[in-house]
Amino acid sequence: MKILIDEDRCVAAGQCVAASPEVFDQRDEDGVVVLLAEEPSAELAEDVRQAAAVCPALAITVVD
C-alpha cells in the first residue's frame, strides 16, 4: 500500500488525522495534511482506507 497526498486539494478538515493518527498529521501553520508514513504497515490499512474515504476534498489516494 502506498499513499499519495494532493496538498493543493486539502481543505484542512482533519478527518484523516482522526481516522489514522499514526499515518496522518496536519501542519501547524495552515492545517494541511502531512503524511507520516508513505507506506504504512498492513495493520494500518483499514484505517488509511477509512481516512481516504472520509476526506471531504478527496485529497488522499491509496494505491495497493
Rank of each mutant, 00 (worst) to 15 (best):
1 M>T: 13
1 M>S: 12
2 K>V: 06
5 I>E: 10
6 D>R: 03
7 E>A: 11
7 E>Y: 15
8 D>E: 03
8 D>S: 07
10 C>V: 02
11 V>M: 05
11 V>E: 14
13 A>Q: 13
14 G>F: 01
14 G>R: 10
16 C>W: 03
16 C>G: 12
16 C>K: 07
17 V>I: 14
17 V>S: 07
17 V>P: 01
18 A>P: 04
18 A>E: 09
18 A>G: 01
19 A>M: 03
20 S>R: 04
20 S>Y: 05
21 P>W: 03
23 V>K: 06
24 F>P: 00
26 Q>P: 14
26 Q>F: 15
26 Q>I: 11
29 E>R: 01
29 E>P: 01
29 E>G: 00
30 D>K: 03
30 D>M: 02
32 V>M: 02
33 V>L: 15
34 V>G: 04
34 V>H: 08
34 V>N: 10
35 L>M: 14
35 L>R: 09
37 A>N: 11
37 A>R: 11
39 E>Y: 02
39 E>D: 05
40 P>A: 08
40 P>S: 15
40 P>I: 00
42 A>L: 06
42 A>M: 04
42 A>N: 02
44 L>W: 02
45 A>Q: 04
46 E>G: 10
46 E>C: 01
46 E>H: 07
47 D>T: 07
47 D>C: 09
49 R>G: 08
49 R>M: 04
49 R>A: 02
50 Q>I: 03
51 A>G: 06
51 A>F: 10
52 A>K: 00
52 A>W: 07
54 V>P: 09
54 V>W: 03
56 P>V: 02
57 A>G: 11
58 L>F: 08
59 A>F: 04
60 I>H: 12
60 I>L: 12
60 I>F: 10
61 T>C: 02
